[in-house]
């Protein structure tokens, strides 16, 4: 990748309302934690774009440095880093995720 990785990541994060950096794809997640977040987003009926970090080591490491967060998946809503699987699941279970999305003007089921 010739473009600076951080610039590239910033562009992806700003490209759509909900962006998920994950291992694998929504159709075939390659890790339990990534799969959990995909299931939550699908359950809430949210459109999101996903980036498969397994396709490029530079993305996989770059995203961890970008947010100083050592694990994948990473969820972004309106360019804001929300968290990994633990936080997304916790927010979902406490109904905070739906509220947060609606506050940001994102329609859910």
């Amino acid at each position: 990748m010739d473009e600076n990785i951080n610039d590239w990541i910033s562009k992806q994060i700003a490209s759509t309302d909900v962006v998920l950096f994950m291992k694998g794809t929504p159709e075939s997640p390659q890790c339990g934690f990534s799969s959990q977040v995909v299931q939550i987003l699908n359950y809430l009926g949210i459109e999101f774009s996903s980036i498969n970090v397994l396709e490029d080591e530079e993305i996989r490491n770059g995203i961890k440095e970008y947010t100083n967060w050592p694990t994948i998946p990473q969820l972004y809503i309106k360019s804001e880093f929300i968290g990994g699987a633990d936080i997304v699941r916790e927010m979902f279970e406490e109904n905070e995720l739906k509220e947060f999305l609606e506050e940001k003007g994102i329609v859910t089921n």
């Binding site: 339990g32 934690f33 961890k64 100083n68 967060w69 050592p70 694990t71 880093f81 929300i82 968290g83 990994g84 699987a85 633990d86 936080i87 916790e90 927010m91």
Partner: peptide, 27 residues
């Protein structure tokens, strides 16, 4: 925030997180 709280735990594990330790569920 939750993110800051979890980062404190991850920082405690330093570079081991994701390298030496594959899966850690944090609360």
């Amino acid at each position: 925030s939750r993110i800051e709280q979890h980062q404190i735990v991850y920082d405690a594990l330093a570079e081991k997180m994701g390298n030496k330790l594959h899966a850690l569920q944090v609360k």
